[in-house]
């Protein structure tokens, strides 16, 4: 019995000594500078870029939040670009209130932007400890050529409208971007060989 009490006292003493870890500051301010690519994202006419940051106690949750937010931003950027294109196409063909065009383009935007981002990638990811949290910095990139290609493929579903669109300046502009993207892909393939 005595030995049991002694053991209990020793364990209790040890726990009380090692359990007191001292007080830690409640908040710690992050002092690391944010990545250069975050404050000054790259500019490339062939890509859309979206830098985003988020924090969480869970490292992966911080990265997921920042990445998803960046992808939503990419979708918005592309949507704006296609809306601009729609307007210029409407001005070109002189049918501002053409409901068929409006419907077709809005449906196509929905298909391409809202349901498919093919080839978007987290090009750069960085994270730092920010007090009790992790702060993640993410740069998502999306090749415009790939998006345009998907857009044109979706337009092809309406053969009549696609034929009209093909004859426009807006199409040529978009087609140039697709061609540039194809050349870039070929150049990448050659580099690899």
């Amino acid at each position: 019995m005595r030995s049991f009490i002694s053991l209990f006292v020793v364990v209790a003493l040890a726990l009380s000594i090692f359990g007191c870890g001292g007080s830690k500051p409640l908040t710690q301010t992050r002092t690391d500078p944010m990545p250069e690519w975050f404050s000054n994202p790259p500019q490339d006419p062939n890509f859309l870029y979206a830098p985003r940051t988020a924090s969480s106690r869970d490292l992966n949750m911080a990265i997921e939040k920042a990445t998803t937010n960046a992808r939503a931003e990419i979708a918005r950027q592309y949507e704006l670009k296609v809306e601009g294109l729609t307007k210029s196409f409407q001005e070109e063909v002189g049918t501002d209130e053409d409901s068929e065009i409006n419907q077709l383009f809005s449906q196509t935007i929905k298909t391409v932007v809202s349901t498919q981002l093919m080839g978007s990638r987290a090009a750069k990811v960085s994270h730092v400890k920010d007090g009790m949290n992790y702060r993640a910095y993410v740069l998502v990139e999306y090749p415009i050529g790939a998006a345009n290609q998907a857009f044109m493929n979706a337009l092809k579903a309406n053969q009549n409208m696609y034929t009209r669109f093909r004859a426009s300046e807006s199409f040529k502009e978009m087609d140039d971007e697709v061609q540039k993207y194809e050349e870039w892909k070929k150049a990448q393939a050659t580099k690899m060989q």
Binding site: A75, S114, Q116, L117, M118, S120
Partner: peptide, 8 residues
Amino acid sequence: RTILTSVQ
């Protein structure tokens, strides 16, 4: 996600 992501 790189291959295909749907964002709404």
